[in-house]
Design a protein around this nucleic acid. Structure first.
Length: 301
DNA sequence: AAAACGTGGCA
DNA sequence: TTGCCAAGTTT
């Protein structure tokens, strides 16, 4: 048994109450939180929200659910249609995986999004976070839901540091489990509340501590809001990378009604080696399909 | 376990 | 303008 500075507070009940009451008052009215969204709506939103801001997801989510109101509706379409409808949300492999998840749900789960965490985790594109989020938000199950918002809230309020580690640690999972309310319905509420607090108040750059329901108990505040120490937090350049080239190539395929000639793809990037590598990558990932005559299209099968 | 994987808004 | 940041997953 190792003792750490990250031990749960003696009386987490006060923390639960404060955050959940704040949520009841301030939660955004998002479409995937409405009862009519259902588990499929929750799952679609979770895929789209991976690394993508709410404001950009909103319109695509609405179109998606209107077109494919149930998993089987999406499963009946070619994967390329999912990629096209994904639009400019970014990370288009998510569209492919969401389509794959819909196929699996239709084939193995009778068309219904599974309740069970392990079964969710087995779906393409569903990792630890998304499985917990769907089980918790859609079905009210008791799971530690550890996304970037929750990790930041816990890092500050409980651990007393400005930012969590780069990658999720065992200590964070332990802490999240320790903090989880016993009661199932309360646990699900807590998951949504802590996430919303991180998104709206305990933000990365400029936390609005004046509006925070737990500012008085926040370990980071109590420590004088010390600045992050350790290595710089990120550093992903984009311009000139294969990712940028892939994005440009896929945009051409997405916006075309049918197959596209090689020349149309060649036009988006002048460096031939990198361009070829990017296109090969798209094909390898199943995002593009080469045809016999040198044409390319979104995946049909 | 580090690195790849899109895109756009904001300070 | 540049860099940070946004409800992660996969290999």
């Amino acid at each position: 048994m190792t003792t750490t500075a990250n031990a749960a507070p003696a009386a987490p009940a006060a923390l639960h109450t404060a955050v959940i009451e704040w949520f009841d008052e301030h939660a955004r009215d998002l479409p995937w939180r409405r009862p009519e969204a259902g588990a499929w709506g929750v799952m679609v939103s979770e895929f789209m929200l991976q690394q993508t801001p709410v404001a950009r997801v909103l319109p695509v989510y609405e179109q998606w659910l209107a077109r494919w109101p149930r998993p089987a509706d999406l499963a009946a379409e070619p994967p390329g249609e999912a990629v096209r409808a994904w639009g400019r949300l970014g990370y288009p492999r998510r569209a492919l995986r969401l389509h794959g998840a819909a196929v699996a749900i239709a084939e193995r789960h009778g068309g219904d999004v599974p309740h069970d965490h392990a079964k969710l985790l087995a779906l393409p594109g569903v990792g630890e976070y998304t499985a917990a989020a769907v089980a918790s938000f859609a079905y009210g199950r008791r799971h530690a839901v550890l996304d970037t918002n929750v990790r930041r809230v816990f890092a500050r309020a409980v651990s007393g540091v400005q930012y969590p580690p780069t990658a999720t640690t065992a200590a964070e999972r332990r802490l999240a489990r320790a903090l989880l309310p016993e009661d199932e319905a309360t646990a699900a509420r807590w998951a949504a509340s802590t996430m919303e607090l991180g998104a709206l108040v305990c933000t990365a750059r400029a936390p609005a501590c004046g509006r925070c329901p737990v500012a008085a108990q926040c370990a980071w505040r109590l420590a004088g809001s010390p600045a992050h120490d350790g290595p710089p937090r990120r550093g992903q350049t984009y311009a000139g990378t294969d990712r940028q080239v892939r994005g440009k190539l896929l945009a051409v395929l997405r916006e075309a009604a049918g197959p596209v000639p090689q020349a149309a793809l060649d036009a988006v990037w002048d460096e031939p080696v990198q361009r070829a590598r990017a296109l090969d990558g798209l094909v390898a990932d199943g995002l593009a399909e080469p045809l016999a005559d040198g044409m390319y299209r979104l995946p049909q099968g």
